[in-house]
Amino acid sequence: MSDYERIAKAIYFISTRVHSQPSLDEIAAHLHLSPFHFQRLFCRWAGVTPKRFLQVLTLERAKQLLRESKSLLEVSDTLGLSSGSRLYDHFVHLEAVTPGEYKKEGAGLSIGYAVHNTPFGPAFIAITPRGICKFSFLQGEALDEHLADLCKKWPYAVVHEEQQATLEVLDGMFGGAKKPDRPISLHVAGTNFQVSVWKALLQIPPATVVSYSQVANAIGSPNAARAVGTAIGSNPVAFLIPCHRVIQQSGKLGGYYWGETRKHAIHAWESAREEVLLPE
């Protein structure tokens, strides 16, 4: 079992027992680890203690974050993710395919792919010369399923395995040890509405959450919250297009295409790095 699988098991245990506030001993026993070894594992992965992580899961904290959320319209959609963030020492640039490129369905395009480990489990990544075109966390699916989905969206592209270049991109996403020398670029295909939603998501700072209706307001379609949810669900690039930062108006976490436990994990990971948790 990988570290992330152990952490995911712990997070699921904690998240289903928030109201009873499970002790360190109880969580460690669930994983068949000593309290000492579990605490060290959790701190190494999340950057915070299990006790502090419990604060991320409270409904009241989520509601507070929603109340504090600034209007996405205050940030120009040309800025991308803030380069001042301590989570990312870079920003994300999203470039959508043109209508002409969309019609070509990838003709003349080379796409490299690979599967790599990440802090949130194994993931499938595919890149074009212009950026990441697909990034998905694996949830037990065969590699063939992800390849088939990639080829369906880009049927005339030349698709090949590319371990080294994709690993370098992944280091820029999760490494944190060094600054990327250029923005991380995304090269995505979608409708005008989908692209507008994905660009709006890029304006949400790490360790911050917004509601579906706030995103709808930000793109000038206040009555389209449900359509916004559909566009978020079709996000082709997990994590970097941060659909995990959109939650229900009630403060509940809501669903997540790559699993609710993983959504909890990403929230904790980002919060730890942004130092927004309450003191113990």
Score class of each variant (00 low, 15 high):
256 Y>V: 08
82 S>M: 00
257 Y>K: 15
8 A>R: 14
265 A>E: 03
252 K>C: 05
142 A>R: 13
104 K>V: 00
129 P>F: 09
231 A>I: 03
266 I>D: 02
101 E>M: 11
168 E>Y: 02
184 I>S: 05
243 C>Y: 00
220 G>Q: 07
81 L>K: 09
203 Q>M: 11
5 E>C: 02
51 K>I: 07
71 S>N: 11
3 D>K: 07
188 V>C: 03
63 K>F: 01
120 F>S: 02
47 G>L: 11
42 F>S: 08
154 W>G: 00
134 K>F: 09
110 S>N: 13
166 T>K: 08
56 V>E: 15
53 F>N: 00
199 K>V: 03
182 R>A: 15
44 R>H: 14
96 A>L: 07
147 L>P: 05
7 I>M: 14
209 V>P: 08
73 L>D: 01
274 E>A: 13
139 Q>I: 01
232 I>F: 04
203 Q>S: 15
68 E>C: 09
209 V>H: 05
81 L>R: 14
72 L>F: 10
6 R>N: 13
130 R>A: 06
57 L>N: 05
247 I>M: 11
255 G>Y: 10
36 F>R: 15
264 H>Y: 15
63 K>M: 10
114 A>K: 05
277 L>M: 11
84 G>A: 07
45 W>A: 13
144 D>K: 13
144 D>I: 10
277 L>F: 09
48 V>C: 14
250 S>Q: 13
120 F>D: 01
134 K>V: 09
204 I>C: 04
126 A>P: 03
73 L>Y: 04
140 G>P: 08
164 Q>E: 15
97 V>I: 12
122 P>F: 05
63 K>H: 07
101 E>H: 01
207 A>Q: 06
29 A>V: 04
223 N>M: 09
41 L>P: 10
143 L>C: 04
159 V>K: 03
228 V>C: 01
161 E>I: 05
114 A>I: 00
243 C>G: 11
67 R>G: 10
131 G>W: 04
13 F>Y: 15
30 H>C: 11
32 H>D: 15
72 L>K: 07
16 T>D: 13
280 E>C: 08
271 S>C: 14
10 A>D: 11
207 A>T: 06
210 V>P: 08
165 A>L: 12
223 N>D: 14
119 P>S: 10
97 V>P: 00
175 G>D: 01
268 A>H: 04
138 L>V: 02
190 G>K: 06
64 Q>K: 12
137 F>N: 01
93 H>S: 14
43 C>I: 14
244 H>Q: 03
46 A>C: 15
69 S>N: 10
100 G>Q: 06
75 V>M: 09
134 K>T: 09
107 A>T: 01
137 F>L: 14
